[in-house]
Design a binder for these strands. Structure first.
Lengths: 200, 200
DNA sequence: TCAAGTAAACTACACAGTGCAGTTTATCTA
DNA sequence: TAGATAAACTGCACTGTGTAGTTTACTTGA
């Protein structure tokens, strides 16, 4: 294998932008070729159809949507600051413009074609970090409810709804300050509801 | 005024379905005419363009997205069951298939064209019922925080995220039982965080 | 020499929107 | 009650445009 020719990536970059801007149906292969500074034929040499190019992008993008948050519960530390840390980490992850834009692209096409839904579920829908955190927290006696799936979902709801909604609805990406407020308030509410009496 | 011809409504019905199924770009005026059992020319006699037809539908649909929930805080009653009632009312409203499908249509097009966003904000984004409820509850001393906008948003987050997410992501409309569980858990969490000590 | 790329013309098709000759329908009038 | 009238509707051919994907003839660099 010679060198990792950059043409393919030029095409992918241009395609991501085009799909993002116009959606699958609105995207034009001619424009993609043009803005990738590549002949149309070259596009088709790398990707046999629009559909294939789109799917290639989806896969590429999915890797970047995989939750990178990795906060684990530490039994010997108090719960509250750990909740805040978890909320902040999730918030930081959600707030990146790259994530938001990719998510929007995927969401838009998922709505168009529900068959793509599993893509979202396996990507953005990942909740395992929260689940694991809650499971460990309960095992350590820090939670007052054994239903850690419920606890996990509520925490996620508090954070994600307010982070996403403004963007979905009006394209507004939440500021770092707004996100910090959301993280604090979410942690506070979660603590009020789920912290065990014995936990500090 | 001659007669209230039903053709226009046949067209609107067919168009709603077509736009819902294929989105604005994917929708075909020929198919709309065909499934409305009307000639294409008739479609254009009623609506001068695809865009006009789409906007007519948006307006039609918006009226149906206006929040119909009307639960007011009653100072002489305990807070907790009132929270549950509010959550249930919101849940019932959200859960109707008509609402879900229309919402999805609007959301899809909003993502395609953020200029349509204000449509959603003035419709589904209405939070005044919750705001009013919280304001009254605070005035009656039932809440432990003066920030009723925050309280309101958190309550909404707990309910809406879990009601919408499955549908947006996979087309799954939540069952009445699932919604009831969400309402109860949301009310419980909200109460744990925001109920004043003096409230019963 | 040859693999990869370029540019531009070309095919085939789907679609929005129009024009028009003729038909249906409801309502008003004699 | 028969028939006139106007408006709504039909069916269909047609224009123009944008697009996915292909073909062809040419270039470039190793």
């Amino acid at each position: 294998m010679p060198r990792p020719v950059p043409k393919k990536e030029q095409i992918l970059d241009a395609a991501i932008e085009e799909f993002q801007k116009n959606g699958f149906l609105g995207a034009s292969m001619d424009r993609i070729a043009e803005s990738a500074k590549v002949s149309k034929r070259t596009v088709y040499n790398h990707f046999e159809s629009k559909e294939h190019l789109f799917r290639a992008i989806m896969e590429l993008v999915l890797d970047q949507l995989i939750e990178t948050v990795d906060v684990r519960f530490q039994p010997d530390h108090p719960l509250k600051p750990q909740l805040l840390e978890l909320a902040r980490a999730e918030g930081k992850f959600l707030r990146s413009e790259k994530y938001m834009r990719l998510f929007r692209l995927v969401l838009g096409e998922t709505i168009r074609d529900p068959k793509l839904a599993h893509v979202l579920e396996s990507g953005a829908g990942r909740v395992s970090v929260f689940d694991d955190f809650m499971k460990d927290a309960y095992a350590a006696g820090a939670l007052n409810s054994s239903d850690f799936a419920e606890a996990s979902e509520q925490f996620i709801s508090l954070i994600k709804y307010r982070a996403f909604w403004p963007y979905i609805v009006s394209g507004h990406i939440i500021t770092a300050d707004e996100m910090e407020t959301i993280a604090q308030n979410s942690a506070e509410t979660f603590y009020a509801r789920f912290a065990s009496n014995t936990s500090k």
